[in-house]
Write a protein that binds this DNA or RNA. Sequence first.
DNA 1: ATGGTGGGAATCCCA
Length: 291
Amino acid sequence: MRLATWNVNSVRARVDRVVAFLERSQTDVLAIQETKCRDEQFPVAAFEAAGYEVAHVGHSAWNGVAIASRVGIADVATSFPGQPGFAKPTAPAATDDAPAEAPEPEPAALLDVPPPVEARALGATCGGVRVWSLYVPHGRAIGDPHYAYKLAWLGALRDAAAGWLDADPAAQVALMGDWNVIPLDTDVYDPAAFAGHTHVTPAEREAFAAFADAGYTEVTRQHLPAEHTYTYWDYQQLAFPRNKGLRIDFAYASPRLADRVTGVVIDRDERKGKGASDHVPVVLDVAAPAT
DNA sequence: ATGGTGGGAATCCCA
């Protein structure tokens, strides 16, 4: 079986490329991030025509995660237990004409309603594997509320994932997606360029490493340990021709699933040409389970 | 050279 993950940066803008990748790579289950659409906007027909069922969660033009599978798709979950939400700050900025005043409280704040859970995690059981398509919050800037949200989100996911292994040490779980963390200095073209930025802080790196502490193996590093192996290149500044990339797309596997992974491929060619996503697919080859 | 790219609900926001 072949499992893959790919941040496609709008599934509607790239549906032809995504379906062509599925057929070319013979991927059975694809975890998709940044679909950038609502459920009713997802181009399901193109996937079904290629033989894939789709589960998706998307609330707006932002975020959105999906799983496409040709080996079944069951027990879909549109968030993980304890997944934190995020609300945009609503206070208007002070100006010369309008000095800072007490902002109008949002109705949600008046009612003390928790912030909405974003479309960043989708779970489904496909071919006997519990697959999670994950789009970890970016963080924006150190000290930004989004940065605290990112750390809380990763911590809550770790707690949930640890719980799944506690409940069933033989569980077949794949945590795949865009983690928005650069775990090692050798995962970025120039560490100095990220000094003072998100993705490389000790807190983010510890939050990422905590999944290994919980018993999961990051199988893409296990099989592709070479330094400066990237999965993302910015659209700007000719980053891809200059190979100024980042390694931020990963797959943590539970012990029993990690045992089955026989190889990993990063499909670097998918970054080439007109209409490419800024991320490329990461593909896992998974052997049949031991009988 | 103070821009640069590419998505989206778009004369702005987000990555």
